[in-house]
């Protein structure tokens, strides 16, 4: 059964730039779905429309039976999501543990042991207690990503969104984060939607991949079938990504 449905979603900006041109997509419950595309193809706008941060011009986005248009009237729509932002978006004025605690406090207002829960989540993503009381600017990018992940899973969402999860990380840390994301999604049994331009990340994390090009989904399928899928753009994207990988190793 579909968990997230994009129904002919259009989004344009003042000046006439149309970023999403009637996007339709269905993500099944429990699925790990990847949105793959070039830089500037509208991936981040796609995500912000899903979260209701940007209003769509026409069409509809539905999560279970809730429409994105009901987001402002009911908190129920937003409670289904949690997001790992590209730049982590940890609050500068709070320590690492306070960032996680703050997320829990907002989601579960009556809970008394927020701090204990926050510590538990931080340990679960592999952060040591010595960094709990440091500020985001005092820890490395990889640790920040883990802390942001802890904040995302702490609110126990039904859907986890990852925006370019390995961006800005070295290959080793990126690999570790990828494993962490895959294990977390598997252990929690949640639906996940990942935005990336990295084919390796897509292949590693995905059950299914959708390719976004020039404001529309041009192909959906398994990552393993991308190479010879019959879509010119997708095949070109696949070969271009692979070629870069080969060039690096030779």
């Amino acid at each position: 059964m579909s968990k997230i449905i994009f129904d002919c979603v259009r989004k344009s900006f003042p000046g006439g730039l149309e970023v999403l041109k009637g996007v339709s997509l269905s993500v099944k419950g429990g699925e790990s779905h990847i949105i793959l595309g070039q830089s500037g193809c509208g991936k981040s706008v796609f995500l912000k429309c899903l979260l209701g941060i940007m209003a769509i011009d026409s069409g509809d986005i539905r999560v279970d039976d809730l429409s994105v248009k009901d987001r402002l009237r009911s908190g129920e729509y937003m409670r289904k999501f949690s997001i790992l932002f590209q730049g982590n978006a940890l609050f500068d004025s709070m320590t690492i543990i306070e960032n996680v605690e703050f997320g829990i406090g907002q989601a579960k207002k009556n809970i008394s042991k927020c701090r204990d829960m926050a510590a538990e989540k931080l340990l679960a993503v592999g952060l040591e207690p010595r960094v709990f009381d440091l500020y985001p600017s005092e820890i490395s990018g990889g640790m920040q990503k883990r802390a942001a992940m802890a904040r995302a899973i702490a609110v126990e969402p039904e859907i986890l969104l990852f925006d370019e999860p390995t961006s800005g990380l070295d290959p080793v840390t990126g690999g570790v984060i990828c494993h962490l994301l895959r294990d977390t999604v598997k252990n929690l049994g949640v639906t996940s939607l990942t935005i990336t331009h990295d084919l390796k990340v897509a292949a590693f994390l995905s059950d299914r991949v959708s390719v976004l090009n020039q404001g529309d989904i041009v192909w959906t399928g398994h990552a393993s079938t991308m190479k010879k899928c019959g879509n010119e753009f997708v095949e070109h994207f696949y070969h271009a990504s692979s070629a870069i990988g080969e060039d690096r190793t030779t």
């Binding site: 912000k48 979260l51 941060i53 908190g75 937003m78 409670r79 999501f81 949690s82 997001i83 932002f85 978006a89 940890l90 609050f91 500068d92 703050f102 997320g103 907002q106 989601a107 609110v155």
Partner: peptide
């Protein structure tokens, strides 16, 4: 961070 606040309701 402002988007993060919105997603945390």
């Amino acid at each position: 961070q402002i988007d993060a606040l919105i997603t945390l309701q």
